[in-house]
Write a protein that binds this DNA or RNA. Sequence first.
RNA 1: GGGGGAUUAGCUCAGUUGGUAGAGCAACACAUUUACACUGUGAAGGUCAUAGGUUCGAGUCCUAUAUCCCCCACCA
Length: 840
Amino acid sequence: MNKNINDNGGAQNAQNTTSSATANNGSNQADTNNASAYKAPNIPAPLLSPYKPESSEVVVIDIHEKSQLSNPDICIKLGLTSDEAEHFSIILPPPNVTGTLHLGHGLMASLSDISIRFERMRGKRALWIPGTDHAAIATQSKVEKEISKNEGKSRYDLGREELLRRVEEFAQASHDTIVTQTKRMGTSLDWSREAYTLDATRNHAVRTMFKKMYDDGLIYQGSRIVNWDPKGQTTIADDEIVYKEDTSKFYYFKYGPFTIGTARPETKFGDKYVVMHPKDERYKQYEHGQKITVEWINGPIEATIIKDETIDMEFGTGVMTITPWHSGVDFQLAEKYKLDKEQIIDQKGRLLPIAGPEFAGMKISEAREKIVEKLASKGLVEKIEDKYIHNIATAERTGGTIEPQIMKQWFVAVNKPFILPFSDIKGIEAGKETTLKQIMRAAVDGGQVELIPEHYNKTYFHWIDNLNDWCISRQIWYGHRIPVWYKKAEDGTIAETYCDILSPKEADRADADEFVQDEDTLDTWFSSGLWTFSTMGWPEAFDTKTGAIQAGSDLARFHPTSILITGPDIIFFWVARMILMTGYAMGTVPYERVYFNGLVRDMQGRKMSKSFGNGGDPVEISEKYGADALRMFYAMATAPGTDTKLDENKIKGFKHFANKLWNITRFILTMAEEQKNKDVSSTATYDANFSAWSAKDIELIAERDELIKTITKELEELRYHLASDKIYQYTWSRFADIILEESKIIFNGRAEKVDATDPENPAKNHTALPAGTQEEKNSRIQFLLHTLRTLLVVVHPFMPHVTEELWSIINTGKSLNDMSSEERAKINAADLLMAHKWPN
RNA sequence: GGGGGAUUAGCUCAGUUGGUAGAGCAACACAUUUACACUGUGAAGGUCAUAGGUUCGAGUCCUAUAUCCCCCACCA
């Protein structure tokens, strides 16, 4: 498919550009029409019926794709931009291969495309990279669910290899759907640079990054309390937790001289520390470290008094026992006072032998009441509250109730000092000690990354300040396997831990066979964090010793990216992690501006959810009203950061707007034809060098050019809603309703009209007006032809399809939709409106 | 508990440094071999949530209050 352009155009394209882009595009029409002295207006046939987005859009999309103008290297070859030009680059937030695109994706893609097309038309080296995200847990659990439902099998029944085969099959299908959908929106993405977060290139980047962080001591393995999802059988990160309100019973038990409250009796077997506030008057006779014997579930135990200020004296009795293995807060207390930690519940949610023969092996749900019964029989139950409302932690992806566990996992240390050898980040000095947290803070604090709207700064900083080490290992199979191998000694202990980009086998180690790879995979956001540079040739194009970037590489030419348009829901998951990874890997920022769009909601204000019902498909809407209409809706309906209600009525209105442009074109071409027919000497074809403007038209030109300036400024500042609104208002209310109406009078004059029954009604009455002079007519027809072209150019980033169609019609008299595939193949890429220069 | 956002016409929302209130849709009246009914013209519709304050001047800045939404944290 790349051949077409090169075969037909090749080197010639560049030459054609200059001549055809400037003047005389309409000369063919003029020649044929001048042959007859007078005849009825002859306008291109396609204009005679309303604009049909459903048939034109797919044709334009195809032509745009074949033109390869989305590839900046092709634009350079065509002379539309150069390597000296300023770059403008965006990465598309890679959609998860868990399903299909929803309207939120459509929003991000539309706004990004408006900016990319705008900057490309301004002559910048514009690159927009597409891709998809493997979304580890989300994808695997979706496939597991289906397998369980259809075949009643678990992942362990299938085995690692077979499950991965199934997941990949599913991911491929999703990917293909997503690509089709994305293209249908008219997105000018450079598909030749498409990437996947789990492909070989990205795997190499991930391993390189892991190894580097491992060597710097920033990735470590440690036994810490983590969020264990018993349903998904994996750990998850703190920000993958969703809290849900739950009503349960709340129990008060006698614990020696104290009364303790709990909602989770099943964790209480190992509780041998009782904690209270040092200033609590009620318990002043007890001392920190004092040991007392108390009667408990399975008989008497020795309990130790701990006094700590984190205890809330107001809550319950002001006394609690702790379970360090299964609670984050308790774990921290245990660490602080070096207390024993004992596991009570296993990873499948069953009680361990420590619970005694009576309870061991029991599931949490059944054990709870039995334990309470036993305590009651011993007279240790004081009180039971029935309606205790609290939040329980659940896993975002599987819905499983989080069971905190102490486990050996891999972490990224965010507070550990290390030396960053090179840095462009303000406030982070090269060669000096810093931390990942400081890098994340400095990038935004110094203004190198601008968050739009600005109030997200506060959210961002707050998150960073409270950030703990990032747990990056997952016990699932779909994802980047941790590049660590272990060699076991004869006694079963680990004799050697090997971390490298190449496996022992790939590294040709003689003892390669003795190594076993770590079973775990990486958090999906680890690979997404590298996205801006792993898609541009890192690490090959980057010298990790000197920080030099290989000249001519994408990394040198397009990084940092210019803007990121994404939803605020992934500010921590992704936006922050990219800043962390980019700062660490290259001492720079991933992007200069982040534009957070709001959520797309339905008319009832409900969140559009892909998993439940009201998902909404951008393709469906595009087929009904046109992608142009949907894009215009997205542009116009959203101020940054505020939610958008999807209003089909409005989208319909923008379909009408596309048709309005269609009819404006038809009308102007008709007028031009009429003038030509009436007056042979008239210059009624587009003349780029026309200068005999009438006084009135000089004003109109000034007004129009002022508007273009404003729109340019709005687009530079990413105020899509203001830019689009101004174009819309000018086109419809000013240009069509006022200027075109006035033009009718200039060309033909107006007869007096009197309705005796209703003399006051302006709609029924008007006075006679004379037509303009020949000079005024000549000037006006040129003004209309010039302004029409300008409007098509300016509307193009918003509505690329209808404008490209009209561009073809005004320049060749032919609709792209009506052309044969041979004719379409002959189109010079540089002649497309998409390649046209933005007016300034 | 902490933070952020919102509150403007019947509905959905704009309103960039303070300078006489805007759009789309809906509703109303009218026009009609009209470039376009996927149309045009006109009229109507708002104490800009409430109460104070700063200012010559506040939808816009400040302080409270109310209601709604979101995010973060989470208590045994």
